[in-house]
Amino acid sequence: MSGSARLALEAWESLFRAQVVISRRFAEDGERAGCSPREYDVLYTLSKAPHGLRMTEIHQQMMLTQSGVSRLVARLQEQGLIERRPDPDDARAQRIALTAAGREMQREVGRLHARQVIRAMAGALEPGQLRALRDLCTDLVAANDAERPPSGKESGKEKEEKD
């Protein structure tokens, strides 16, 4: 294994471990205002989409199965935090959007979450390190999103490897 390959694996392991350790710390602080981290993830995702999102768009932004997202959305709808609206671009589809109660819950939990993140990140890293981490992660996302084919389609490279 080349030095750069080994370094890539070590960097991935470090990044993954940091995320796990920090997530566990958040979990130890308990559910945020009666909202699980996954429920908050849906609320946060929807807070960035004033006109709502289709289920497929929510699914693409979360690390859950389609059925897992469907169950979360159903639970949040039962709680009155989100609602289904007709999709103006497709009469067959629906958009999922925050209700007023959902926006308030997202803000309340968001404030608690922000304090947790600041304590975990700023307590461990200096401002220059935080900027470098932000920039590196942004570059990783951009590079890998650019290489990812549209949902359900293979890239040219994947097709070549099969042939």
Results as ranks from 00 to 15, higher is better:
L43R: 02
E147I: 04
C137F: 12
S47Q: 10
T45W: 06
P88V: 06
A33S: 14
A18C: 10
Y44R: 14
Q79M: 13
P127K: 06
E104R: 13
L72V: 05
L72N: 01
G52V: 04
T65H: 05
Q94Y: 08
P149N: 12
L98N: 02
R84Q: 13
A91P: 04
R17L: 15
Q61M: 14
T138I: 06
A27Y: 03
Y40Q: 11
A91Y: 02
A132Y: 07
L64Q: 07
D135Q: 08
F16P: 00
I22E: 09
A143D: 12
E83Q: 14
R54V: 06
H51M: 09
L46F: 08
C137Y: 08
R115G: 06
R131W: 05
M63W: 09
A49M: 04
P37C: 11
P149C: 12
D135R: 01
L112R: 07
R119S: 13
D41L: 11
D29A: 14
L140P: 00
S70W: 02
L136Q: 14
V21N: 06
L43E: 00
E57L: 05
A124W: 03
G110Y: 02
Q61L: 14
E108Q: 12
R119M: 10
T138Y: 03
A120I: 04
S151C: 05
T56C: 12
G128P: 02
E154H: 09
V42Q: 02
L53T: 02
A91K: 03
A142Y: 03
A114H: 04
L64D: 05
E83K: 12
P86A: 15
L140F: 07
A124V: 09
R134W: 14
Q94W: 06
M121H: 06
S47C: 11
H113L: 09
E31W: 08
G123P: 03
S70N: 12
D41N: 07
M63F: 09
P50S: 13
L98K: 04
E104C: 03
E108W: 03
E57T: 08
I96K: 00
R103E: 12
R131C: 09
L98V: 05
D87T: 04
E78N: 11
T56E: 15
E57D: 15
V73T: 04
Q79G: 06
G52D: 00
S23H: 07
V21F: 04
Q94S: 15
R24T: 11
L46R: 02
E154G: 09
E28F: 05
G110H: 01
Y44K: 13
V141Q: 05
V73M: 02
Q106Y: 02
P37Q: 09
